[in-house]
Write a protein that binds this DNA or RNA. Structure first.
Lengths: 218, 218
DNA sequence: CAGCCATGATCGAGTTCCGTTCCGTCAGCA
DNA sequence: TGCTGACGGAACGGAACTCGATCATGGCTG
């Protein structure tokens, strides 16, 4: 199994948050414009204060258009999150292709790098960490949860670097993903460029935590 | 410095989220009733769906009373968070007094235990982790952030167990607190009693991470 | 110690704002 | 040129929040 298959866009299940699939071409542009607008507004006023009117105005659309594509306010944020996840995975896929990692550690590191880069460059990317929590109380675990990432990564590590597959690996990776998400988000909490200390410590912890179980490198 | 001084209620700075300090006795009862109501409602309908009307009704008060004490809806949640932090610290203080830890590790473990117990028993306790994220975009680091905990814990570990004080210790602890918060919240995300696997792994990781820097135990 | 009353506390109808709907109109495609 | 997808924005419902009327408390006074 190629890395690109695990992290490429092919394997992303289309979300259910969109009301009407865009048929005409202009509507696809509308959709991205709406999400771009939502991303900006989220960064400016926060998750609580965002209003559908703000999103519509910023996107140069009317209220009705927002509701044409999304059933409600929360769905817009979920759409934003879904796109962020997609972009993250694409970025990881690119990073893997460029880096051609020789060890499992280098592969994991690609994930950290991709995360940091997107946090820096992508408006509204912080929604990734946020939505994690809010989701908890309502729904069933979905394929965007950390557990899903854990499975994806497990696939890569197993296929490419021969790590022993199994529940232990999955669990380890889920813990690792949770910690990394937490530390990297912390790095960006009060520093738009990301506090290098936390980023570096995150890399170190990931390495030590996974190495402690699967042997140092290789 | 006694442990109780670091974690007792004395050192808690009164929050600013309350509009009017209660003067008469009944209003103090009102305030706790409002927070109790908010805690229940949060657990039932989530952070998004909570309304001031729900809180008022559950507390047996009118809308106006809610707004007498809190400037807006979000402030109620912040008040709830502040109380949760307070209770966590009190619980840690109790736990330390009972346990009489002999090693730094036992002391840290008290923190984990307190967190787990409160998560299980205290309605709305999950707000601790939630609010962490939302807070980030608006305000300056406050004394309820993880950094504050790190300082508190550093004080205990330095005074009681002779660990070397300094920025390194503070940073380590901040990272540890962040990871613990993340893993423990994950333990409770889809399991009201807390997934024991994550709780145990959290303890192990805390121990290894801190021990790796300061030497095993003692 | 009873009663007074300044002031804290409460209430809830009313106002404003926001989420959401709905239908009339416009634009792309055949 | 008609048919269907896309769009706009007024209108509706409900939730956040205000405000002046009203009630309760507890210190003070005689």
């Amino acid at each position: 199994m190629a890395l690109i298959d695990l992290f490429g866009e092919d394997s992303v299940v289309q979300g259910r948050q969109v009301r009407t699939e865009p048929i005409q071409q202009r509507s696809a542009a509308r959709l991205t414009a709406l999400l771009d607008a939502a991303a900006e507004v989220v960064d400016e006023v926060g998750f609580d204060r965002i209003t559908t009117a703000m999103v519509a105005e910023r996107a140069g659309a009317s209220i009705g258009t927002v509701y044409r594509y999304y059933p409600d306010r929360v769905a817009v944020l979920e759409g934003l999150r879904e796109r962020a996840v997609l972009r993250f995975r694409q970025r990881v896929a690119e990073s893997l292709k460029e880096t051609q990692p020789k060890t499992w550690w280098e592969a994991v590191d690609c994930g950290v790098t991709a995360f940091v880069e997107l946090y820096r460059a992508e408006p509204g990317f912080r929604i990734l960490h946020f939505a994690d929590r809010e989701r908890a109380q309502s729904s069933v675990p979905d394929e965007l949860a950390t557990g899903f990432f854990a499975h994806q990564i497990a696939g890569v590590l197993t296929e490419e670097f021969g790590l022993a597959a199994g529940d232990d690996l999955i669990f380890r990776l889920e813990v690792a993903v949770e910690m990394a998400d937490s530390l990297l988000s912390r790095a960006f909490t009060w520093n738009a460029q990301g506090d290098e200390r936390f980023i570096a410590e995150c890399r170190r912890i990931m390495h030590d935590y996974l190495a402690g179980f699967y042997g140092t490198d290789a």
